[in-house]
Design a protein around this nucleic acid. Structure first.
Lengths: 187, 187
DNA sequence: TTATTTTTTTAACATATGTAAAAAATATTC
DNA sequence: GAATATTTTTTACATATGTTAAAAAAATAA
């Protein structure tokens, strides 16, 4: 999935509009375990993932919680930074080496002010991300850790090879001990 | 908080743009316990609340979960309906008599296609709602039922007078028995 | 006021999950 | 390949929360 396909999958754009957009985007190769977004800081960039797996997580004094593991074709952005230019809540880091497209959010916002199609693209992006957030919330509310584990394996069979079980336990919202118990039953 | 204040609080608009928007909005008085949005259905309306309290909830075979209790100044919309024109997940109903402003989402989408300021308003709306959804999720992930109960009382002291404890327990994600135990300790 | 219904609290018990610590398995380094 | 470090599983125990049912309290109706 190349840059154009990712962008147009969110909302169709005219050739000219796409080119304006592409002009403020840079490809980047990022090593494993690199932090892309830092909680408590304002960041003027966001990313599209071409290749690789990342994790979005929150951190408190007591514990850290993995929220989601975005992969190819998905968008990485801290909405607080992006929309409000205020400090974000989440950390985002790579779990594998990643090929990313880095978007200059400030330049994009300028485009929103003059370009109708891009303004609607931006609207669509926020709506899609909202729907994803809603789905995540519903997953948490309705599904047991067991179900969510099974679904995770189905969606990212590679994930379990690459990352520590503690990460997955944190995503499921249970202790690692409980995750081990879940896995013991399954086999 | 009148209609104009609510709309402009999301994103500033020129007088002319605001008037175009206001033309597709109708005030409505809605009785207590009226269902506004139905899960599984596509709805082409959404609402701003001038007065009153509502609840947004999900329902499964096993149980129902209250997600949030929007009140004055807040927006009621099912993102799936609004953005994707697909069936929504949530039910929304009034808990008290409400004064609402009903927006014709189809007409609004047409405006988005031609009016740059409104397109940016729509972008801002989605971004704000996203941030709210993220906060709700974080509340669920980080805070205990106890804390969330205390905060709820602080934010909506009236709520507890008006609605059944079962609703609040469902919002907190605990059984009503547990909520009773929480309340017993507090006093 | 009394009676009836609804809502909330309490009690008793079962169970799932967390914590802490040790054992086992796996991966890494020299 | 042996030694070390890391990760995962298992065990033992404590505790919080759910379920079911009964009691108490509050609200509504007669």
């Amino acid at each position: 999935m190349d840059l154009k396909a990712i962008i147009l999958s969110i909302h169709p754009l005219q050739e000219d509009d796409y080119n304006q957009f592409a002009a403020i985007i840079q490809p980047r190769i990022v090593a494993k375990n690199t932090r892309l977004i830092e909680a408590g800081k304002v960041d003027h960039r966001f990313y599209f993932i071409q290749e690789g797996i990342t994790r979005v997580y929150y951190e408190t004094a007591e514990r850290t919680i993995n929220l989601v593991f975005p992969g190819p074709g998905e968008t990485i952005l801290s909405l607080n930074s992006y929309s409000l230019q205020s400090a974000g809540y989440e950390y985002i880091e790579t779990l594998t080496e990643c090929l990313l497209f880095e978007v200059d959010a400030i330049a994009l916002k300028k485009l929103y002010q003059t370009n109708l199609d891009l303004a609607n693209w931006g609207r669509k992006l926020a709506e899609i991300e909202f729907i994803k957030a809603e789905k995540r919330l519903m997953n948490h509310l309705f599904k047991s850790a067991q179900e969510r584990y099974t679904e995770l394996l189905l969606k990212y069979p590679a994930l379990i090879q690459n990352i520590k079980l503690g990460h997955i336990a944190s995503y499921l919202g249970v202790s690692q001990v409980t995750l081990s118990r879940i896995r013991a039953v399954k086999s």
